[in-house]
Amino acid sequence: MTEQHYLGIDIGSITGKVAIINQDHQLIDRVYLRTEGQPIVCIKKALKEILDRQGALPIAGAATTGSGRKLIQTIVGADIARDEITAHAVAAIDYCPEVQTVIDIGGQDSKLILIRNQLVVDFAMNSICAAGTGSFLDKLGDQLGVTIDEFGSCAICSSKPASISGRCTVFAESDIITKKNYGYKKEDILMGLCYRLVENYKTNLGRGKKIKSPILFQGGVAKNQGIVKAFSEILAEELNGDQLIIPENHDVMGAIGAAILAQEEMELRQVQTKRFTSSFLGWEIPNIDYQTSSFQCDHCENLCEILEIIREGEVIGRWGGKCSRWDIK
């Protein structure tokens, strides 16, 4: 049987992740990049990296997830777009079929997913307050002159973690300045921040939720050793003697989940409609010129701002309207 390849893209506000798997869910290639405020450029660059390493792999199906999934679906011609909860849950179940809890912490949001018998039974998301996300660590690490890559290794050297007050980034930042002035060690403040983030996460997302082991920790923040240590201690009762599970490709699990969903979708289409050719636009995407523009619709009192995506002079997508007047048919 010819090897089939499926493409998954997870596009968020801070990072873009791309994964390619085969029909057996083996990871063929992956890319993790910061968007730097330009999600289209980010995904074009990611696809170019894979193209340079793998050549023009035939893609049997493509899917997008993340906050920018509809935009990137239009850009790459993905067959489907799915929400982050579904994508992360699918990847977690594929990695560990017995999983009951998924912790995902990204740059601007965090998620808690409860799974029983391989079905999502409950979830919670925090996309409003930064105090339970990676940007919390990124911003406050800057106050101490520590990059996000250095954060974890420095934090676990702490012998006496500082108590960081407040459930808000603003208050935590003020507390850091105070503790710096009092001469606290850098590693003690950093580890204190790790405990604060995990406590915020459990308070904001875990309240009233039945967290059970096995627990998977995924997302970019899972590489932070200080956060892993804090979760292992604060969730000790829930772990019940088990270890916190961190997948090898924890940072691209959303993209892997999207790729699995693409495979499921295309196999379902083949059975139901006999139509299984992917709408993926191909490996020329990195060379295609995409532009954005906007205008205000004055057709009614809503005065919607309509965003347009233009590919080589042709409008291929519009967003922002409260009605279907400007939708691309």
Rank of each mutant, 00 (worst) to 15 (best):
R82P: 01
C129V: 09
A131C: 07
T147P: 02
K111M: 00
Q108D: 10
A172I: 06
L114T: 14
K185Y: 11
E84L: 05
R116F: 08
D83R: 10
D109K: 05
A78R: 07
F123H: 11
D109Q: 08
G183H: 08
I103T: 08
S165Y: 15
A81D: 05
C154W: 00
S158K: 06
D149R: 12
V102R: 08
C157M: 02
D94H: 15
G183F: 13
A172R: 13
D188E: 05
D83T: 10
G192V: 00
G145W: 04
D149M: 02
C157P: 02
D188Q: 03
L144P: 09
D122E: 05
S110W: 08
I176E: 02
G77T: 10
V76M: 08
T178I: 14
L114K: 14
D188M: 01
D138H: 14
A92D: 01
Q118E: 06
H88S: 01
I80F: 13
G145M: 00
R116D: 07
K111E: 00
L140V: 04
T86E: 04
D83P: 05
Q100H: 12
Y184I: 02
M191H: 15
F151L: 02
V198W: 07
C168W: 04
T74C: 13
P97A: 04
K139G: 15
E150N: 15
I156D: 06
C168D: 01
I189G: 10
L119W: 09
S127P: 08
G132M: 01
L112P: 10
I156G: 12
Q118W: 08
K111N: 02
A78G: 11
E98D: 14
I113D: 09
P161F: 15
T101N: 02
A89K: 05
I156Y: 12
S158Y: 13
C129L: 08
S158P: 13
E150Q: 14
I80S: 08
G166A: 05
K179R: 15
V99P: 11
Y182Q: 10
G192R: 00
D104E: 09
I103P: 00
D188S: 04
G166C: 03
I113K: 13
Q100P: 02
I103N: 00
Y182S: 07
E187Q: 10
K111I: 00
D79I: 12
G183I: 06
K180H: 06
E150R: 11
G192Q: 00
E187M: 06
